[in-house]
Nucleic acid binder design. Sequence first.
DNA 1: GCAAGGTC
Length: 990
Amino acid sequence: MGFLFISSLLRTNVRFCSKKAPTMKYLNVAEKNDAAKNIAAILSKGASTRRDSFSTYNKIYEFDGTVQGQQARMVMTSVSGHLLGYEFAAGFRNWRSCNPVALFDAPVVKMCAEDYQKIKRTLEHEIRFCQGLIIWTDCDREGENIGYEIIKVCTDVKPNLRIYRAKFSEITGPSIFRALNTLGQPNKNVSDAVDVRQELDLRTGAAFTRLQTLRLQRVFPTKLADKLISYGSCQFPTLGFVVERYQAIEDFIPEPFWKIKMNHKVKDITTEFSWKRDRLFDKNACEAILDICKENPTATVEQVQGKPKSKWRPVPLDTVEMEKNVSKKLKINAKETMKIAEKLYSQGYISYPRTETNIFPKELNLANLVTQQQGDNRWGGFAQRVMDEGGPNPRQGKKSDQAHPPIHPTKYTNNLQGNEQRVYEYIVRHFLACVHKDAQGFETIVTADIAGEKFIAKGLLILEKNYLDVYIYEKWNAKEINHYEQGDTFTPTVLELHESVTCAPKLLTEADLIALMEKHGIGTDATHADHIDTIKSREYVGLHENTYFVPGTLGMGLVEGYNNIGLEVSLAKPILRAEFEKDLKLICDGLKDPEVVRREQIQKYRAVFETVVERMRQIDESLANRLDDRPQVVQDEQFENATIIPVLKCPKCGNDMHLKNRKNDAGKYIGCSGYPGCKNAIWFSQNVESMEVLEDSCQNCGPHVKKLKMKFRQNIFLGEPNPNTLCIGGCDLNVLEGLEINPSSVRNTGNPRPPPPVNNRPPPPVNNQPPQRNNVNHTVVNNVNHHNPEPRRSSWPNTSLMATPGPSGMSNRSHSEDNEIVCQCNQEAIQLTVRKDGANKGRKFYKCKNQTCDFFLWASEDGNATRIVTHNDDNELKCNCDTPAVRRTVSKEGPNKGRTFYCCPKPMGQGCGFFQWADEDDDRGGGGGGDGGDDNDDRGLGGRNFKNTWKGKTNKTKNNRTAPYNNQTRAKRKCGKCRQEGHTRDKCPN
DNA sequence: GCAAGGTC
């Protein structure tokens, strides 16, 4: 039997009061400005309505479109990369607040940094007017994670959203429309993998950095006192590569070798033959072979092979190739190159510079791009030639990041100077080269024999330089040799022994280093340059002749130290990171549980950390050796002991809230660990003498809410013992009232909800009584948004068998059965099934059987009712004890003063804790039927006003609510002091 | 004062 949940008939009525089918409105969010702009341009083409406006952050594009085969209003905006990031909880941020090893277990919180608050607010604002959300972030791992950040921010404001993921391989018309027509769901596995990576990087980075810095500064005060000695899972292996090469050179022992040199000169041309054996490391053997050759030094031409030879034009340019080539050919380092490329991109001269793609999408109009360059006096002629010789024909690579095209010029300019000009020129020349033709030549290979020994000479004739005419960074040298025919014989001009020695490998250039990073999966195309820059700025490495990387004494000492302390795998090697990367891949593929990987990896790194701490003296010694300094004997570092017991989960952001001391010993408060991103706090008056967080959880509020032992100077809970054992989680309104706690600080009051369920089961009933259900009081079984892919931690599921109270004996439907659905005409509703193709196909819903009202209700998965019907008679409202609720008025000064609410009539501690505002219905429980929103809202953004612009109707809520969670008809703010409108407490004239 | 990853 299905139960009916008391929810918002009033609102349902409002939503469906119009006969006209409501138009869905979707918020579309891309990863960056540019993507939003381009996607909007594609999707809005041909739209009858299009408006652009500015939010506090960036541009918002609005147009009409079609989603899931239905007409829809589209609002497009973007974030700017990650919106949220992990931080340690407040008590662990100070370097001396805890032993670094504690950072492996310290609570971490996901926060929105100050710089991104405006973007977050834009999303929070825009989503209020939408019923759906479409994620258009890049289709890679980070993009999926950023997508979930957007989902979190939006669903925190509006839990019941239709959520879709657009999957596109490039921002071109066909790909974008294909994405819109085949919307899918975001991939939680992929996002989880990124969460695990982020958390691990933070924990390991911070722990090792603090350990190294705090200790080594004291051990080597003269050399390292002011140095930041950082560790990072990418920067250390990068340093490791530099050290490894340096050590290979240091350890190199040259070895002599010998070869037979054979030349043949005719007139001015000398043909150099190379010995097929190349070289021998045995001088006697080499001499013996030479002696045999010299006994009869006539060379016979055995074979003359002639064949066409091409030199391939480059593949389209990706970031790593650009960094390597610009570093090698233009001597501009990767960091500088990326800085310049970003500037050129922001000025519109080149495409997005962070790309792993080296294949041009078919839809890109390359001919246009080539033609743009024709006026240049350096390469314009070549651009003309490309067009004259059949148009652009790009050589295609094999890589695609499924998000960005290869780097190419997007606009012609000859106004650039210095390195900007050089980088632009490189990008243009590379582009023109890769769309032209391979260079053509003719190679001749001559094989000669002297006494059974084979010698080979190669000649090259260049026929067409083609791309080489514009790509000045590569050379292809012709090699002239004499003319030979098979069977010819000749006497070599030179036939002698040539002695040489093997050479040590060269120090790494930046291009070599980037290639190694790419090979071992260290960093991404967008971060290689940063990691290299970091190890330079930490003075771990330096540059020799401005080209070759050499380790500094600090870098060398550190790596040697870590390599010497007997770790199974040194931190300076890429293996640890590579293993981690493998696990991340398994998470993405759904083959490994992210929580297991997280735990295992933390455990692994903690074990390494503990070994390092134990053997830190060996690292001191390695460093002493390289720094040429005497290590000071130091005492163990003293740390404070950060211990934080979470009191409850913050209803605003989902992070833990902890008990803290107010400044100047002025009592206690409970603050959110997400501070400063989240400023939710509960302040206690001076009447609170002491407070202790107990280990006991509140039975009503769930395991996340701990009870408090509070002692009052003057006991405010008369008849209760002092100290009191209380729960401030919201289950007992009298406690909140007595302590002057705003319910919204401790629970989500916009939609009075039960505590989160344990093990996916509904929470225990209040006072351990079974859920109350009278003959007509139906309990919601399900109003969860079926489109939401995952339950969200921070918003409690709407599935419950208790808590949200219902009225007894609803007179207007008292004739109905318990599980009967009644429409607004007070008739039994009929159940139908969605037949139309789309996300809701097959889903059951209820509507008015006579079609005389606009009643609409989704059925739950089991076909029973989902949500419906609310109170319309104050006197009939009962609390969870099945007792008529009492109506009270807020007397406390504050925004809710004068507001009435219903609560359980029983004394504090004995009642069920029932609470409901009298003027508020459920503002968040909307189902998939569509939220009409309020189009009359002038958002005040740059004069933006969509009043009656596209929907052609005005929906006002019937009840003129003043609740803070009512987005549509918010009451004017009043002064907290004098209660007058027009000013705030700070500026109160009274 | 820590990381690496997005992007501006």
